[in-house]
Every structure is written in C-alpha cells, then in structure tokens.
Design a protein around this nucleic acid. Structure first.
Lengths: 208, 208
DNA sequence: ACCTGAACACCGTTCAAGT
DNA sequence: ACCTGAACACCGTTCAAGT
C-alpha cells in the first residue's frame, strides 16, 4: 500500500501517476489483462481519459510501470520469505521458490504481464530492469552463502543462480498456464516446487 | 493439418480456416502480438473481415488455433532433434532442450502467445492440451529410457519430467524476456541451456 | 454455403478549450 | 498546471444482403 495522494488540491489528484498504477493493478486482479484498457484505468482513478497522457507517453508505458511495481513487490516478498526461513541453504532456496510461486498464484494476470515481453529493450527501461535484478541478487547471495557453508558445490554463483531461477520460474509459469496439473490443494503446489528444487539439489545422476 | 475443403470452389478459399492460421503466424513473425488483429489477418488471407467468424466464434478461438499449431510444430522439432542425438540420456535431453530454445528464439511472439494464458481451461481446449502433452510425453519417455540404461536415478519419470521441462521452459522464457543476458552468439545460448541441464544432472550438493 | 459492406460499441491518442 | 469533452482512426463483432 503506497502513500498516494496526500490531499486533493482543488483538482482530483495529488499523485495521479501512482493512482493509475494502483487502479491498473486492481483491474488486472479483477478482470485480467483483457480488461486493462486505459480509459477504464483512468475512470477508476477518478479522472477522464486524457490526463494519464500527462504521466505516461502511451499505454505501454503504464504497463511497464505496473510491471515495475510488481517486480518491487516480488522482491519484498522473496526477501521476507528468505529472512524467515531456516538457515540451511536448501531451506532458504525452498522458501524463495515457494514465495515466488505464491506471488504468481496470488496475482496471475500481474505476473504474466511482468513477463510478457514489455521489457524487451533493457536499455529502454532501466528502472524495470533494476527492479527485477534485485530478486536475482537475492538468489545469488543465498547461493554464495550456501557455498561458503559447504552446502552447495563450488562454482560461479551467477551460473547456479540462473539455473535455480529458471527452474523456479519454469515451474511457476507452467503451473500458471495449467500446463502442469495442479490439485487445488496449496500444500501440493508448495510440495511441487520443493520437490523440483530437491531434485536439482540431489542431481539426476544415480548414486555411485 | 486438418482436411477441410479440398479446392477453391468459385469463392476465394478452399481452406480459409487454415489460411487464417498461416496468416496469423506470419503477422506474429513480422509484427509481434501487437499487430495481430482479426481484420488484418482476414485481409492477409484475402477475405473481408466477416468470414473468419464462420470458422472461429471469436478472436480468442483463432489465437487458440494458432497456439495449437505452434505446439504441434514444437513437438515435431523436439522429436526430430531427439532422434538425431546420440543415445546417451544427457545428450538426448540436451538436444531436446536446445531444440525447445531454438524454436522459441526463432518465433518469440508465437512462443509467447502459446504460453500466454489462453489455455486456462484445459477442458475447454482439449486439442490444444493434447498437442502440448505430446512434447511432455517425449520428455517422459526419454527419461524412462535413461533410467532403464542406468544413466538416470530411479523415481517417478513424470516427476523428473516436470522438473526438466520446468528448467528448460524457465531458461527459454527468461532468455526470451531478456531477463537473462544473452550474447547474440548462438553457441553461447546453446551452452547456457546445456550448462543448466548439466547442473541438474550433477546436482548442487557438493561431491562427498 | 460463403462472401461483402454498412453499422455499432469501444479503445488509444490528440487537441482545443476551460479553470 | 491539470482537467474536460469532442474528435479521429481503428478494432471486434453483428447483420442484412448479395452470388
């Protein structure tokens, strides 16, 4: 819950930009991306359809801002989950993975929008890129700590982080798209990502 | 390739349904999903904007058909890659992973469309679901063969297939969204997915 | 049966005015 | 400075006609 308008100042808004992002997120949650049109967002924020153009050059720019907001919230939730987990490396990675999945299942349309090709030019959206890199940094740091404590094998932690992020992201998006069967049971879903991470930890190679 | 009408019969088309799918794929390749509007697809297929409604109840249904076409082609490419790879399990999985990624990089808009939430109700789109399950079956069979030859540890091959598919899908989609840096070098990209699979094969746990 | 063209409601975007 | 309302080009969808 961001601060938003301090007070209305004769006009409708003190922080229209933020109000538009909040309205957009609400519409995404209620109607999905199909319902996310600029006029409806403006209406919900309490203004007519022109003022948004004072804050965003076009609809795409609003979508990027909504995605960036999502990446920031994702990071907060991953960091909270990690800080509350046991210190064992596998427990920390499991907590991050479950939080990543929980975020996605809690707001599927927002999650899809965050990874829907908006960010194609990283140079063009540096703050969005920075927001998503925070989460990657959390993963890398967790892995480096696990290597320091001897729980994770040596190697470039960035490479390992790419693999783990990919596994978590893949499970999450395939579940979101119903490509993997999902019993409505939440414990089942958490177990799925935990099981995948455990398999990565153990490896596919038979024990010798 | 459905059968439909064999030849044009005085009117413009013998197989408008198929022509619309092909036109849609071409637009996706040239302009991305933003350019994929029904009127443009119809124009490109050589008809006015009403006839598509004779084959598809709405735009969404055309998108689903385009996605299904994509899943069928994906399966063909995965199967071809696997059949040409060496018999070692890790080589087979690597070939499937590289083919999956190559498909996505070759047609990013189509790939995104295939995994963009169209399929939310599996019951509502049984043929799309079946098309995507073919590829999953290929993966499961490859894993089962690797277990039979002693190269892959014992366990439910479906569970292992979910993990491997998730890893391949995650690497692919994160690369597609530029969330993972990608040197334009194709060898590098192939190496990235091969490296991730190798890490899964070896496990994160330190050698004992 | 399959096609065309007009029509409707709607959306993204712009702009001339208002306060 | 920030707002409104009209306007334009366009899209998804429907429908009365044509052949």
């Amino acid at each position: 819950m961001p601060d938003s308008e301090a007070t209305a100042r004769g006009y409708h808004h003190g922080d229209l930009r933020n109000a538009l992002i909040i309205a957009g997120r609400a519409i995404l949650a209620e109607e999905g991306s199909a319902g996310l049109d600029l006029r409806k967002v403006a209406r919900r924020a309490g203004v007519s359809h022109a003022p948004p153009y004072r804050h965003f050059p076009d609809k795409q720019a609003l979508l990027v801002a909504i995605a960036e907001d999502g990446f920031q919230e994702l990071y907060r939730q991953l960091a909270a989950a990690q800080s509350q987990a046991e210190r064992a490396a596998i427990a920390q990675l499991g907590a991050i993975g479950r939080a990543y999945l929980a975020f996605a299942l809690d707001r599927p349309a927002h999650m899809r929008e965050m990874f829907s090709g908006l960010t194609l030019e990283r140079q063009a959206h540096p703050s969005l890129y920075a927001a998503s890199k925070q989460s990657f940094g959390l993963l890398t740091a967790t892995i480096a700590a696990g290597q320091a404590s001897g729980e994770i094998r040596a190697g470039d932690p960035t490479e390992l982080a790419i693999t783990i992020w990919s596994l978590i992201h893949g499970v999450t998006m395939l579940l979101l798209e119903r490509q993997i069967a999902m019993d409505a049971d939440a414990a089942d879903v958490g177990g799925l990502i935990q099981g995948a991470l455990q398999q990565l930890y153990n490896g596919l190679r038979p024990e010798q």
